[in-house]
């Protein structure tokens, strides 16, 4: 009984944390766009949190650069379980257009276990919402 209530609560209240590991801003502004009137994800219970300790889902954009790798890992470790990681945008999925750069390590999955990949360069806000919805279906 309690289990199913908790599962329901988790599905209805996904709080996200956003971290740019080396992206170009394109996906980042689309993530920010989610909060604004046209998309307004608060109606789905999604809040953008400031502290990793409060978040459930880590939204990562961009390829992982050498300098941001350790920071990315640390942020993930600071988040309390249960937690999920989403790779936003083509760069986050695979390194995208920057693949092969000397300072680029590749996609987010080089560093963290990624649960959902949202491709697109940059991906549309609708795609990010769809990604979160799919992730929540997996929680079920």
């Amino acid at each position: 009984m309690w289990e199913s209530v908790v599962r329901w609560a988790r599905r209805k209240s996904p709080w996200v944390l956003h971290f740019n590991t080396g992206g170009c801003n394109g996906c980042d502004i689309e993530i920010l766009d989610l909060l604004t009137p046209r998309y307004d994800v608060e109606r789905l219970g999604i809040l953008k949190e400031a502290s990793p300790r409060h978040a459930d889902i880590l939204l990562c954009t961009g390829p992982v650069t050498r300098q941001s790798r350790d920071r990315l890992r640390r942020i993930y470790e600071q988040m309390p379980a249960p937690k999920w990681v989403m790779a936003i945008g083509s760069c986050g999925c695979s390194g995208g257009v920057f693949h092969g750069g000397y300072n680029v390590l590749g996609g987010i999955d080089q560093v963290l276990p990624v649960d959902i990949y949202v491709p697109g360069c940059p991906c549309r806000p609708e795609a990010i919402i769809a990604g979160i919805a799919q992730l929540l279906d997996m929680v079920e």
Binding site: N20, T21, G22, G23, C24, G62, P63, T65, Q67, S68, R71, F98, G100, G101, Y102, N103, V104
Partner: peptide, 14 residues
Amino acid sequence: IGYVHRGIERLCQQ
């Protein structure tokens, strides 16, 4: 800075 340094100038040459 340099957290988002992707080496674009070098990539351009390739």
